[in-house]
């Protein structure tokens, strides 16, 4: 049995909403697991069930070999960082960190030692006497993490902790969280709707949609090999292009072009997915794109345009290529990196 084990966990709210469907998942000790999905997909609910803040309707959660379904949150030995930090506004930073330890009846000297160590680790030693209202967003974030670290819990839970920070700080804190987790080595679950955050932080990633884990794997596995239409569309930025098509006798025909000898026995209506970065310009290629708009990001250009059938399409090319608005491009799918999904079920078929 792994460190954290969820078995057929289901959450149905009293009003009948089913937030999480029979989800099973295991997290190994020291692993950094990320739950990613759109808002309302049940990822936070799942996290809160691990924390004990939501009741489990059905299923079992085991932590460190112990069934914790009915264990009070205070006894679970988990620490959580909230989206709005939930710092204790009337206590200074020191007491914010020390509160959990005091409740455990730890003696004063040990508390002081632990708080100072955590503060040093997070570089908040200078603010220990301040109230949270006197701290900046990034500093509050650190205090929230310090409060989690200082208890030395079995598992860290992060509930979208970076979404209140500005873009620059978010990237910086993202790095720090990752470094910190590696240093401390505590098993962590991180919930986010930001796929970049998910990709960069995760050892393993669970893409969640409508209360179901659509796919579980390392970030690269999921990026390279999405198993469903939803995962393919959710992971990757800019989003994967999707085209309608039809397969007959191993030949896929989409509007304006055909792909022969595809690696699938599927027949019928499909969606063809092509990532913008898996394209290159080559004479007489499959896809003809009329350019509407070019976003120059410096390192890359994002080229937006329309295919023959007026479908929106995106192509990502190196930043040193100059592409004019209105140009006609001929694009080739590199290394045959395309994805085919059953249109009715959304499942991958190639």
């Amino acid at each position: 049995m792994s460190f954290l084990d969820l078995k057929n966990v289901t959450k149905i709210y009293p009003n009948g909403t089913k937030a999480v469907h029979e989800t099973s998942l295991s997290v190994d000790e020291g692993e950094f697991m990320v739950f990613v999905g759109p808002s309302g997909c049940g990822k936070s609910t799942l996290l809160r069930m691990v924390a004990g803040l939501e009741d489990i309707t059905e299923g079992d959660i085991n932590l460190d070999g112990k069934l914790i379904n009915e264990v009070d949150p205070s006894e679970r030995d988990v620490a959580m960082v909230f989206q709005n930090y939930a710092l204790y506004p009337h206590m200074n930073v020191y007491n914010n960190l020390a509160y959990g330890l005091k409740n455990r009846g730890i003696d004063k000297e040990t508390i002081e030692q632990k708080v100072n160590d955590a503060a040093k680790l997070l570089q908040i030693s200078d603010y220990l006497q301040r109230k949270p209202s006197m701290l900046s967003g990034g500093q509050r974030q650190r205090v929230a993490m310090g409060r989690a670290i200082v208890r030395n819990p079995k598992i860290f839970l992060f509930d979208e902790p970076l979404s209140n920070l500005d873009a620059k700080l978010r990237i910086q804190m993202r790095l720090e969280i990752k470094k910190l987790q590696q240093k401390v080595g505590v098993t962590s679950i991180f919930v986010t709707h930001d796929q970049v955050e998910a990709m960069t932080l995760a050892d393993r990633l669970a893409v969640i949609n409508n209360g179901i884990i659509e796919q579980l794997g390392t970030p690269i596995e999921i990026y390279d090999n999405p198993k469903s239409l939803f995962v393919a569309g959710f992971i990757g930025s800019p989003q994967m292009n999707f085209l309608d098509g039809n397969i007959k006798n191993k030949t896929l025909s989409a509007e304006g072009f055909e792909i022969k000898d595809i690696d699938s026995d599927f027949e019928g209506e499909v969606k063809l997915g092509i990532r913008p970065e898996h394209l290159s310009q080559r004479e007489n290629s499959l896809i003809n794109l009329k350019v509407d708009l070019v976003e120059q990001l410096g390192s890359d250009n994002l080229v937006y345009g329309q295919l023959k059938d007026k479908k929106d399409f995106c192509y990502r090319c190196p930043g040193n290529l100059t592409i004019e608005k209105g140009a006609d491009l001929s694009l080739n799918i590199e290394n045959n990196k395309y994805y085919i999904f059953d249109k009715s079920t959304g499942k991958r078929v190639n």
Binding site: A51, L53, P73, S74, A79, M80, F82, A86, R147
Partner: peptide, 13 residues
């Protein structure tokens, strides 16, 4: 905010 209660709960209050 509810988070304050939840956070306190996790801190063993």
């Amino acid at each position: 905010p509810d988070e304050l209660l939840e956070s306190a709960k996790l801190d063993g209050a």
